[in-house]
């Protein structure tokens, strides 16, 4: 197997606040292989988006990386200087954000957005050439080339999100971090976008970190799935075995509490309780207050995140 694109080791991210420090990502270790779609799921506040921003080194202050290592193509990202970090962004690592309505500068045309990205990293490309590349790009994304000089407000939500993907494709990034890319899109547009993403992924062998709370989107697109709960990684595995037989009680609860339009069985499984307050996480396993299979040990000792089957890891005392 080739070297992974990203290897995260024991990453911690802290948010100091007035009433204390919140550890938003707590001791997460994870690899992303070349050409795979890794789905990172969890509920709001579980730390999944923070993890994504940490990879780009774009944490909003006062957020900071408090420990661990992140290797990108073999280089430790956390040891890079400002300039090296900047060059990595946009060129090797690209990002697609949740709300395409607010993610594009309203004063820049579609062409400006793309040309700017290309020329920032390839200053030798002439403006004209960059523009031609941009036209080719949006054509491939299913946007008519006449719209190249449109402003963001003239585009629909779906088209804007395609432009965001265009920014990622412009320089053949090694890793695309897509943070809730379809959450603000309507159902049909969402499906169209996922379809496009799947096509592009296969065509260009893209590596995508797909961060979402939408279990359906992960099921549609991901090759592997990582589940986060209260800043911790709780389960990791290939998409089929993970959906067929989730190991962690949280994963199981999460999957069963999602309405499925195809199922005839009308009963949703209901998970009791709410995710813990990260200022004051429960001792032991963080899921234990909500867990139906809780044991004494769970209340006291934190379960390690370890491989229990080949390619399958879980943090739970049951295994």
């Amino acid at each position: 197997m080739s070297e992974p694109v990203v290897e995260i080791r024991h990453l911690n991210v802290d948010y100091p606040t007035r009433i204390g420090v919140v550890r938003a990502v707590d001791d997460v270790s994870l690899t992303i292989e070349r050409g795979e779609v890794l789905g990172l799921v969890g509920e709001s506040g579980c730390g999944k988006s923070t993890l994504g921003m940490a990879l780009l080194r774009l944490l909003r202050p006062p957020g900071r990386i408090a420990g661990g290592q992140v290797f990108f193509n073999g280089r430790n990202l956390l040891e890079l200087g400002e300039e090296e970090k900047r060059l990595l962004r946009g060129e090797r690592i690209s990002m697609v954000f949740q709300d395409p309505m607010t993610c594009l500068n309203p004063l820049q045309r579609v062409s400006d957005h793309l040309v700017e990205t290309i020329r920032t990293h390839r200053p030798e490309v002439s403006k004209k050439e960059a523009r031609a590349q941009a036209a080719e790009l949006i054509d491939r994304l299913g946007i008519m080339t006449e719209r190249l000089d449109d402003y963001p407000h003239q585009l629909s939500g779906g088209m804007r999100q395609r432009v965001m993907i265009g920014l990622a494709l412009a320089l053949n990034a090694d890793l695309i971090i897509a943070d809730e890319p379809t959450t603000s899109l309507d159902v049909i547009v969402e499906a169209q976008f996922l379809e496009l993403l799947r096509e592009l992924q296969q065509q260009f062998n893209l590596t995508i970190l797909l961060i979402t709370h939408n279990i359906g989107v992960v099921a549609e697109l991901a090759d592997r799935v990582a589940v986060m709960y209260a800043a911790k990684l709780v389960e990791l595995g290939d998409v089929y075995p993970l959906f067929d037989a989730p190991l962690h009680p949280y994963t199981r609860g999460l999957l069963r509490s999602v309405p499925n339009i195809r199922l005839t069985d009308d009963d949703l499984e209901i998970m009791s309780g709410v995710p813990p307050d990260l200022y004051n996480p429960p001792p032991g396993c963080r899921f234990h207050p909500r867990c139906a299979q809780v044991m004494d040990r769970c209340r006291l000792e934190e379960p390690p995140f370890r491989e229990v089957q080949p390619g399958r890891s879980v943090a739970c005392w049951l295994y």
């Binding site: 159902v187 049909i188 499906a191 939408n214 279990i215 989107v217 549609e220 499925n260 339009i261 195809r262």
Partner: peptide, 25 residues
């Protein structure tokens, strides 16, 4: 039909290429 087909299904076995209407509302 299109709307129902477009809803993402939380089951990787249900993955398939969908016939979706063109464009947006």
């Amino acid at each position: 039909q299109a709307l129902l087909a477009a809803v993402p299904v939380p089951d990787p076995h249900a993955r398939r290429v969908k016939r979706l209407p063109k464009g947006e509302i």
